[in-house]
């Protein structure tokens, strides 16, 4: 493998550069995916059937905590990449672990949120509105869950191999993914929760 020393390790090989661009294209596809979910959400927003509307079930406190957790995790994964570029393995791993813990916290609160929704009579089957609400939150949550598993794999590889073009590349791509999930959450937070509670 030819490694180009002038670039950060994660861009070091040709395959690494391909991986990163490919992942950006994948993020483009994800934008379309969430765009479609939002389109469906706005279409079904008033189709509450006999179930509750958004304003009746949304609560600000959990949403606020979720937002702060995810924003912070986005910051810490940024720090992880920063540490990685400075060649500090331990700091990288530490920030990775913090990120995943914050992600777990986010998921915990989201699950709590779901339970509250269901208790208030908004189940997956209640209405068109609740179905799309659960689908859009669930899709984002599933992405976070996949991210956590993925992150664990990367941490274990960082432990084993340290900072190599290969592991750095994976870690960097993971960071792109994680930041993107944060972006999606910001839109969910703004246009589902805040709009619903206004």
């Amino acid at each position: 493998m030819k490694v180009d020393k002038s670039l950060p390790l994660e861009y070091g090989t040709e395959q690494n550069r391909l991986n990163i661009l490919g992942f950006w294209v994948f993020i483009g596809a994800e934008i379309a995916l969430f765009g479609t979910l939002f389109a469906s959400y706005f279409t079904l927003i008033n189709r509450t059937g006999n179930g509750p509307a958004g304003a009746e079930i949304f609560e600000i406190a959990p949403v606020m905590i979720e937002t702060i957790l995810l924003l912070t995790s986005s910051f810490t994964i940024g720090l992880a990449i920063h540490a990685m570029r400075m060649g500090k393995v331990k700091a990288t791993i530490t920030f990775f672990i913090i990120t995943l813990l914050l992600g777990l916290g986010f998921l915990g609160i989201e699950i709590y949120d779901f339970i509250v929704f269901i208790h208030e009579g908004a189940t997956l089957q209640t209405s068109g509105f609740t179905a799309i609400l659960f689908l859009i939150l669930g899709t984002h949550g599933a992405h976070v869950l996949v991210g956590i598993f993925w992150g664990i794999f990367i941490i274990s590889q960082l432990f084993k191999h340290g900072l190599t073009p290969r592991t750095n590349n994976k870690a960097f791509i993971f960071s792109l993914y994680w930041h993107f999930l944060d972006v999606v959450w910001i839109f969910i937070f703004s246009f589902i929760f805040m709009k619903g509670m206004l």
């Binding site: 861009y11 550069r17 990163i20 661009l21 950006w24 294209v25 993020i27 483009g28 596809a29 994800e30 934008i31 379309a32 969430f34 765009g35 479609t36 939002f38 389109a39 986005s74 910051f75 994964i77 940024g78 960071s175 792109l176 930041h179 993107f180 944060d182 972006v183 910001i186």
Partner: peptide
């Protein structure tokens, strides 16, 4: 997130990346 954290503009592929993102946002809107 895109610029500060994701370093969207740091490589020679800047143009491709931005076109992809803009295209995606266009399609979503």
């Amino acid at each position: 997130q895109l610029i500060v954290f994701m370093h969207a503009g740091e490589t020679e592929d800047k143009k491709s990346i931005y076109i992809t993102i803009y295209y995606g946002v266009f399609i979503a809107l």
